[in-house]
Computed example of a mutant assay.
Amino acid sequence: MIFSVDARGVGKRYGKRVALSDFSLRLEAGKIYGLLGPNGSGKTTGLHILTGLLTPTEGSVLIGGVPITEKRSRDLYGFAPDDLPLPVALTGREYLEFHHAMRRRKDGPRARDLADLFGLADDLDKQVGQYSHGMRRKLQVIAALSHEPQIVILDEPFRGLDPDAAAALRDVLTGFSRSGRTVLIATHDLLRAERDCDEVTILANGRVVATGSPQALLAQHGGIPNLEGLFMSVTGLDGASERRKSRIAGLFSSPATAPSATAPSATAASEGES
């Protein structure tokens, strides 16, 4: 079987610091996958290796059966990073034209249809520098999807989107996966991951600590009611969470005492003494 994404034993070190270790990920067509983990867990490093932006220290990555080191693999996937590295002097339309030229494709109707779906069609002739955060995110996602890739890899794609745009993106990604393509989303939104992802992989300290469907993982960890609780447990953050709750309870254990209406203020008392 040829997996849409097949990463095996991937690791990344910076000197003595290990950013990612023994990272393996096999993604099938027609599914939505979630990559979860605390800040610094290796999610972004993993995505950058999967998209060829970083070279792994060890391990291998195949995209649609093609090594990520081969240029032809680039036509198979679209990627929208978490940051917003867009050329602010270009208009949205010019950026999409540039994106398609880099991939040796003409700007087709898909980009225009996506812009219309995301409510960005009327703003394509504005400079990107005039775009809000949410508008830039929409443009990134349109670029990642518009060249008709087999796989789309998105890092925090819902961040900064208003509810209507977030709903539109969810519908688009659902339709994309149902057409036999693959979606990989890195996100901190555990509620969305539990609802929308067919499978999730959870990282902690650069290592995979859990992988499977949300339902199967919850069944394996009986007594944990939701993905948030599972996440806290497998990443080892549940103890810190309990200690934090205890500190907060102590911090706010006594209700604030409102100043007495009859008590003189410090300023008034000072003025009376003078």
Results as ranks from 00 to 15, higher is better:
residue 2 I to W: 01
residue 4 S to F: 01
residue 6 D to K: 10
residue 7 A to Y: 03
residue 7 A to V: 07
residue 11 G to P: 12
residue 12 K to M: 08
residue 12 K to G: 02
residue 15 G to L: 05
residue 18 V to A: 12
residue 20 L to F: 06
residue 25 L to N: 00
residue 29 A to M: 02
residue 30 G to E: 08
residue 32 I to F: 01
residue 37 G to V: 08
residue 38 P to Q: 13
residue 40 G to N: 14
residue 43 K to Q: 12
residue 43 K to F: 10
residue 47 L to T: 02
residue 49 I to P: 05
residue 51 T to W: 01
residue 54 L to W: 01
residue 59 G to A: 12
residue 61 V to M: 09
residue 63 I to W: 00
residue 64 G to Y: 02
residue 71 K to F: 04
residue 72 R to I: 07
residue 73 S to W: 01
residue 74 R to I: 00
residue 74 R to F: 05
residue 76 L to H: 01
residue 76 L to V: 02
residue 79 F to Q: 04
residue 80 A to I: 01
residue 84 L to A: 09
residue 85 P to T: 08
residue 88 V to Q: 14
residue 93 R to Q: 13
residue 93 R to N: 08
residue 97 E to T: 10
residue 98 F to R: 06
residue 100 H to N: 13
residue 102 M to D: 00
residue 105 R to D: 03
residue 107 D to V: 13
residue 110 R to I: 12
residue 114 L to E: 09
residue 116 D to W: 11
residue 117 L to G: 02
residue 119 G to A: 08
residue 120 L to N: 05
residue 125 D to M: 05
residue 125 D to E: 15
residue 129 G to H: 08
residue 130 Q to F: 08
residue 133 H to K: 15
residue 134 G to D: 10
residue 135 M to K: 07
residue 137 R to A: 08
residue 140 Q to G: 09
residue 142 I to Q: 03
residue 144 A to N: 05
residue 145 L to N: 03
residue 149 P to E: 07
residue 150 Q to C: 01
residue 152 V to L: 12
residue 154 L to N: 08
residue 156 E to L: 08
residue 161 L to N: 09
residue 162 D to G: 12
residue 162 D to R: 11
residue 163 P to L: 09
residue 166 A to E: 00
residue 167 A to E: 10
residue 171 D to R: 15
residue 175 G to A: 09
residue 180 G to K: 03
residue 182 T to C: 14
residue 184 L to S: 05
residue 184 L to V: 15
residue 187 T to G: 10
residue 189 D to M: 12
residue 190 L to N: 11
residue 191 L to A: 15
residue 193 A to E: 11
residue 195 R to Y: 13
residue 198 D to W: 04
residue 204 A to P: 04
residue 206 G to Y: 07
residue 206 G to M: 12
residue 206 G to I: 11
residue 207 R to W: 02
residue 209 V to T: 03
residue 215 Q to R: 14
residue 215 Q to A: 14
residue 217 L to Y: 10
residue 225 P to A: 14
residue 228 E to I: 00
residue 234 V to Q: 08
residue 239 G to E: 15
residue 240 A to K: 12
residue 243 R to Q: 14
residue 243 R to H: 06
residue 244 R to N: 07
residue 248 I to S: 09
residue 256 A to Y: 13
residue 259 P to Q: 12
residue 259 P to S: 14
residue 265 S to H: 10
residue 274 S to T: 14
